[in-house]
Nucleic acid binder design. Structure first.
Lengths: 339, 339
DNA sequence: GTGGTTGATGGGAGCGTTCCCACCGCTCAC
DNA sequence: GTGAGCGGTGGGAACGCTCCCATCAACCAC
């Protein structure tokens, strides 16, 4: 060892040891063409012997790519990490990025209080693209990020006005599926427990419900619509309200947690599921399998959503400036005991 | 604009616009001394006008610091994101790093299948330090990371053999607190539902239990010790087993979820809490507030744990090669209805 | 007046890559 | 025999920044 132990070996040293030029060594590392087998082997061996690891900064400086993608979580973090849905999305993002040899930079928007710092960070100088995970419609963050000219993909559309660069579950189709199933079972009074209307998952699942009801030639009755906040307690309460409103023989709930609440309320009211009232949820969350009876629900794949988000953002980095078409992920019904 | 719109302005351009040299401009940006007010203002204005953002790669190349800290999650991700404890730790890490102007790089160890790739990444070439979150004792990852000479801090000690560079909740002390409380209440037959012995939280909370029992001059009875897997169902089952084993008037559970299960089993057995059997949990998870009765439990702060991990790893980056003393976070008892 | 000190400044050198171009030695067609 | 073409190669230049050193003006003490 002639050089100080502290500093890691450079490409130059690898090349020297392999008895080739810097250019050739670089070509070997980056899988370039036009390298003789002899040179390739020599370089490979030198790399192993020296324990060479390419310097990311130097590479980024010249290629103008950082190979890093930021995941911005705008939601309050308790929420995000608590919900299995988000956990799934993050898992999907993580594995897709790993496959593409990109790094995942997690930005908790709440944590970085200084909004200026956030803006400065989400720049080409730092990341190749940005993924945004948010529930609410009102956020102005997307616009700010886009203004920097960084590719951005939103998971769960943040505001209906944007029709590109997003990935979302097809909530409308899923809800329709659920309601059609209930109608197909011969149910006459299909109610819904909808989510908050300021969240996409809230209003679009309601939209699907209304669509399906209308398509069946039945008018949507006011008394058959209740609202919750996606929490279990709110589902319980909403169910009680629906029962108080008149005859109900089926309920489509905008998520599984509210459906679990509804099941409880039905039990307390002495009604049998699915005999008296059929229940369908949305999400296919873990809880759907542990309710009694197990919940019939609309299955969505958060993991796939994460993977798709990555696919879209990587596509966007390849064609800068070109908006990528949004992607709607299909859902399907999982029939269990409750309907 | 004389230069192409695509490329962002460089420091050189900022300097030129401000009518100063590159060095002076750099000094202004990095809050250096010895800059006249006049120069500072001129540079500041130029930065604003041009929308200048420093290039991270170029900076990292010369400073040899990336200002990025990797958080490696070795656990299966479902687990990590599901548990509120981990969510809290991550939140703490996120905010502490943001305050220190460091970036959080999330590495899901499961996702990056190629273990070689992981190793290569966790190098000074890429990150300044590594945080490792894991539950199990057997992992050989820490050794591999340390071999690269990168500062590493483990959250929740991965193996008792390491006595430095870790941050953990003082499980032993917490458990002792809980048991002392029960004994102080005059309970004679204090049982425990312990966690898996291959997890630190499992065996060290049991250790605290045994300590406190022994300190009270009572022998630890075999029949008063049951084991669960930290899940609610296992707590229920364990409680039933304890009841079948003889007189019990108090139970210390290694976590709140198992305590919730125990409460259920006690209810089914027709026993009153806390009158007949007092119950104490560990964790102070959200569920502790929603059980009936609300759970008396040992409070720990995952968020603080995250913040401490950051503090330790940053300290380690400042004194490379020097092992940092491990930190044990104190806990305290939160008395609610169950004991 | 002289020499030393101090605040402020400009710019060269260098960080470790990739990109690109010049170049080398062969082979093959004419 | 000559020139074009091609696989393979070496190394200069550039990426955008920080570090450091030389320099300068202003000021003070003697």
């Amino acid at each position: 060892m002639t050089r100080p132990l502290r500093s890691r070996p450079t490409l130059e040293e690898v090349a020297a040891r392999a008895g080739v030029g810097r250019g050739t060594a670089s070509r070997v590392i980056n899988g370039g063409e036009k390298v003789s087998e002899r040179a390739r082997l020599a370089v490979q061996q030198a790399i192993d012997e020296l324990g060479y690891v390419p310097n990311a900064a130097a590479r980024a400086l010249v290629t103008r790519r950082t190979d890093a993608i930021a995941l911005v979580i705008a939601e309050s973090e308790e929420r995000v990490f608590g919900e299995p849905f988000f956990a799934g999305v993050i898992r999907g993002i993580g594995s897709a990025l790993a496959e593409a040899d990109r790094q995942l930079i997690l930005v908790l928007a709440q944590a970085s209080r200084r909004r200026g710092a956030l803006d400065e960070y989400l720049t080409r100088q730092h990341v190749d693209g940005v993924l945004l995970l948010s529930l609410h419609d009102d956020d102005e963050l997307p616009a700010r990020i886009r203004a920097h000219g960084v590719p951005l993909v939103v998971g769960g559309r943040a505001g209906a006005e944007v029709d590109h660069d997003f990935v979302d579950v097809d909530n409308v189709q899923g809800a329709r599926l659920a309601v059609e199933h209930l109608l197909g079972l011969g149910r006459r009074h299909v109610a819904t427990i909808a989510g908050p209307s300021d969240m996409v998952a809230g209003h679009s699942r309601y939209e699907g419900y209304a669509d399906a009801i209308a398509a069946a030639g039945v008018p949507v009755e006011e008394r058959l619509v209740a609202r919750g906040d996606f929490g279990q307690a709110s589902g319980e309460e909403a169910m009680r309200a629906l029962l108080a409103g008149g005859a109900v023989d089926a309920v489509f709930c905008a998520n599984d947690l509210m459906a679990a609440g509804a099941l409880r309320a039905l039990g307390e009211a002495g009604l049998k599921v699915p005999e008296d009232v059929a229940v369908v949820g949305f999400e296919d969350a873990p809880i759907a399998q542990s309710t009694t009876p197990p919940l019939t629900t609309v299955h969505q794949s958060p993991e796939q959503m994460g993977r798709e988000m990555v696919a879209v953002v990587l596509a966007a980095t390849r064609e800068p400036g070109t908006p990528q078409p949004g992607r709607m992920l299909p859902t399907h019904l999982v029939v269990r005991g409750s309907a």
